[in-house]
Amino acid sequence: MTSRHITQGDTRHGMVVGTASRSLGTWLYYVRPMPNPNVLQAVTNLACVPLRLLITGVLALLDLLTARASQRGEYLANAAAARAGSTEGAVGLMDRLMVTDSIVTTLHRETNSRRMRGSGRGGRHDADGLWEALAAHLDSVPEPEFERQRRVGALRGHSVDATHPPTHLRRRLLLNGAPASAAVTAGDSRTERVAGELAEVRGTLAREVVRDGYGNL
């Protein structure tokens, strides 16, 4: 991820600015207020206020100065993704990111139902088919819902996070350019090998999600 940002000219992930930003973030973590403090900790919290304000201010200034380069890097990364996986694939991924709320809802429902089924078997939770259920939910989302989400996203300025440009602008830029075909493809045999290599990890993660809950991971 970092190398991708550096390649696209995102100075936030460069040697100087990136190191400074990570260092300031670490310092901010260490001077954060202690919860439920005793008298001595309350005094320490108060003494650290000027330092926290200083670090927060410098981080905000770094973000402001590098915002344009960061967003340019994201647009270039989108173009690279379209060249690798096709314009259709890159745009389709953006559309799916707009329905993440429904994915989270489905994940909670699936994990809860599996916990209830497992409560009668000595507390063993059945995690089989969890990821397939999420994939099936995504496949079931109709095109009108994606279109509605795109309109809402354009009105509200939907963005993956604060460092990404608005999703509808990223999508429009790709669609306004020449359509790109996928330069990287995987045949059935390679897809099966990848699935085989990930099978154990997928199963372990599914069991942890069902056991501990999505919000606790």
Results as ranks from 00 to 15, higher is better:
L54K: 08
P166F: 14
R148L: 06
L173N: 14
S113V: 14
P33L: 05
E200W: 09
A135G: 10
P165T: 08
L134A: 07
H164W: 10
N78K: 07
N38I: 11
A136F: 00
L97Q: 11
T11R: 13
Y30Q: 11
T44I: 12
R171T: 10
T111W: 04
P142C: 07
V43M: 10
R96S: 08
M1P: 15
R124S: 11
T167Y: 02
A69M: 01
E208S: 06
L24H: 03
E74F: 05
E147Q: 12
L134G: 00
R148M: 11
S181T: 14
P50Q: 01
G123Y: 04
G25C: 07
G187C: 02
V91H: 00
L130E: 03
S3P: 04
A195V: 11
A47E: 13
S159T: 14
L107G: 12
V184L: 13
L51A: 10
S140L: 08
P166Y: 03
N45R: 11
S21H: 02
V91D: 00
A206W: 04
H5D: 06
D212T: 10
H13I: 00
R117V: 09
R171F: 04
T167M: 15
A135C: 03
Y75V: 04
R72Y: 09
N216T: 13
E197M: 11
S102M: 07
V58T: 13
D161R: 07
E200M: 13
N176P: 01
V210D: 04
G89T: 12
V184R: 11
H158L: 10
V91K: 02
N78H: 09
L51Q: 01
G57K: 10
T204S: 12
Q71M: 15
A136C: 02
S113K: 14
A90F: 00
I55G: 07
S159E: 05
